[in-house]
Design a protein around this nucleic acid. Structure first.
Length: 573
DNA sequence: GCCGTTTTCGGCCCGACTGTTTTCAGTCG
């Protein structure tokens, strides 16, 4: 079983934690964490890279030493340095650092003085009042540790973006109604439009003594105030989501927005640019000595640093800093560019509405076309269509096109890709469609090699046009199936096939990294909702978010084109 | 441990809040 990137990243994080506990050079600790971040987010598996003899040293934050360690982990499944350190200090100490308020120093003290080595040990010591007596600790710290242990189970992982939007909307409205508050913006990964959001980062522009901190405390959903000062506060909501609020004056708004939007690696990269000029960038502005030379808007700050304004979706330190310096940032696709949706279901299978109702809903949204993509026979749970039923649906669409004005209904299908790589309906049936959207719906457990071969074989069929939800992941429910995505991209490019960016909030598949990979490989995409009712058509914007995060322009997205150009672009040569 | 139009050494982003302290260390974002 090949080692997964996440496992390597976990080992590096663990090692970083333990080194920090031992009082190692903080920059060395940081290097392990940076490497963990790189490995975790890298779109290709380290195991494959090592297998193909790639030069890991080329990856950001990976030098000669860590390249060697990655290779060792891939080949042996072990990290000798970690084992060596764990022989001196128990490995579980790394877990204790996840408790709020506990960092390396305190965990070290707890271990040295009270031999606390696990979460269970910690709770026993805290509830029996033994922690308050330690030097540097006290009664309040002890109480905080107990609360932190409770929150360990309350705090959820990351929240899907649409759910975070609900919370954000009501919280913004609540804060905006506060006297003295001039502006409320949600920053952080929310503003960067990541598919899931960790904490909600709220930036408030307000005068002194606005009372916004009290306003935040009195928000109905607040479960606990973690900390609250004059300028920043942290609260935990009942949902388990954490909110960080920051108050700034108008003169600092741009700098604060920049700082609070992140990402952290992006911030570090641009602060470094400031340092290069002997300036200083913080959340209050860009400073030359004590003089503020920029800060009111983001554009001003970027401009002073010699960069174009960077769209938040790109702020991940994945080449955007360099591109902004050279004024080479892509002109990202926008929702207004989209002219139609190319994946929806009707009541013929598992959708809720008729073809006509879906088409009229799409027309009302200003779309020029909508394609109908009901399942095929193998997907029995959805009542998939057989050849006869699909042919009858095609005729029905022809008739509807004659009487429904303002929109073209495109004839398509979500064709199941069978385990041997064949398509679920015969070619002479599929040829009656305007194009096909093909997908894997079972056999997720195939080996990476077999899954990749299966899909590539399906692409060999000239009737294959678009690969729907290419990795099959369901956010927080199902991991992507094992597949060689770079090879699929290459295969799609060679054959003139297209990738779907499935905009359904549970999927977002391709994700941002997948979009970037498609763009770099020269593969076009379509952004579609997989709608099962009219309201689902509104999901399209979430797909646009991920495409933007993947650096995509309107040119890269085929359903920004008119119907004729779309059909032309989908045609396989 | 990484990184490099001030390259192979000497840097490495910067500030707020809390609690325990009596001037600041630890933690966090």
């Amino acid at each position: 079983m090949p080692v997964h990137n996440a496992e390597i990243a976990d080992l590096f994080e663990r090692l970083g934690n333990l080194l920090e506990l031992e009082g190692a050079n903080p920059f060395r600790v940081r290097a392990y964490r940076a490497a963990a971040r790189t490995v975790r987010g890298y779109p290709e598996s380290m195991a494959d890279l090592v297998g193909s003899g790639a030069d890991l040293h080329q990856l950001p934050n990976i030098g000669g030493d860590l390249a060697g360690k990655i290779q060792t982990v891939v080949e042996t499944g072990r990290l000798p340095l970690l084992e060596e350190i764990e022989s001196r200090v128990p490995g579980q100490l790394s877990d204790l650092m996840a408790v709020e308020g506990l960092g390396p120093k305190r965990v070290r003290t707890l271990y040295d003085e009270l031999h606390i080595r696990s979460v269970e040990d910690l709770r026993r010591a805290a509830t029996s009042g033994r922690i308050r007596a330690l030097p540097g600790f006290g009664e309040k710290t002890e109480q905080k540790i107990i609360a932190g242990l409770d929150n360990l189970s309350v705090r959820k992982g990351r929240t899907p973006l649409p759910e975070a939007e609900e919370t954000a909307r009501s919280l913004v409205a609540w804060l905006e109604a506060c006297k003295g508050v001039r502006e409320v913006t949600v920053a952080g990964s929310f503003r960067r439009r990541k598919d899931t959001v960790g904490d909600l980062d709220m930036l408030v522009v307000a005068g002194k003594r606005s009372g916004v901190m009290d306003r935040l405390r009195s928000f109905d959903e607040v479960r606990e105030v973690v900390s609250a000062g004059e300028k920043r506060a942290t609260v935990l909501l009942r949902s388990g989501m954490q909110v960080d609020l920051r108050v700034v004056a108008g003169v600092s708004k741009g700098a604060a927005l920049l700082y609070f939007t992140g990402s952290k690696p992006h911030n570090i990269a641009i602060r470094r640019l400031a340092v290069d000029r002997k300036w200083k960038l913080n959340e209050y502005g860009l400073f030359r000595g004590k003089r503020r030379i920029a800060g009111r808007t983001e554009k001003e700050v970027y401009g002073r640093l010699g960069m174009a304004w960077v769209p938040p979706e790109l702020r991940e330190d994945r080449g955007e800093v360099e591109a902004a310096k050279r004024r080479r940032l892509p002109k990202l696709v926008r929702l207004e560019h989209i002219r139609g949706d190319l994946h929806c279901h009707t009541s013929a299978t598992d959708g809720r509405l008729s073809i006509e109702k879906m088409a009229r809903a799409a027309a009302k949204m200003g779309y020029r076309y909508l394609s109908i993509n009901d399942h095929t026979r193998h997907v029995t749970v959805a009542g998939g269509l057989d050849a006869d039923k699909l042919l009858r649906q095609i005729e029905a669409i022809d008739r509807l096109n004659e009487r429904v004005d303002g929109i073209t209904i495109l004839k398509s299908s979500e064709v199941d890709i069978l385990e041997d790589g064949s398509l679920d309906l015969p070619d002479d049936v599929l040829r009656h469609l305007d194009f096909t959207v093909c997908a894997v719906h079972y056999g997720f457990g195939l080996s990476r090699e077999k899954q990749t071969e299966r899909i590539l074989r399906a692409m060999d069929n000239p009737c294959f046009n678009i690969l729907a939800h290419p990795t099959g992941r369901l956010i927080r429910e199902r991991a992507p199936y094992a597949v060689d995505l770079p090879r699929l991209m290459e295969g799609a490019r060679e054959r003139g096939c297209v990738m779907e960016v499935n905009a359904h909030p549970a999927r977002l598949d391709l994700n941002d990294e997948g979009c970037r990979m498609a763009r770099d490989a020269g593969v076009r995409v379509v952004i579609s909702t997989d709608a099962h009712s009219d309201s689902d058509l509104r999901y399209l914007r979430f797909g646009v978010d991920q495409a933007r995060r993947g650096w995509m322009t309107a040119e890269d997205v085929l359903n920004t084109r008119g119907v004729r150009a779309l059909k032309q672009a989908l045609r396989r040569s």
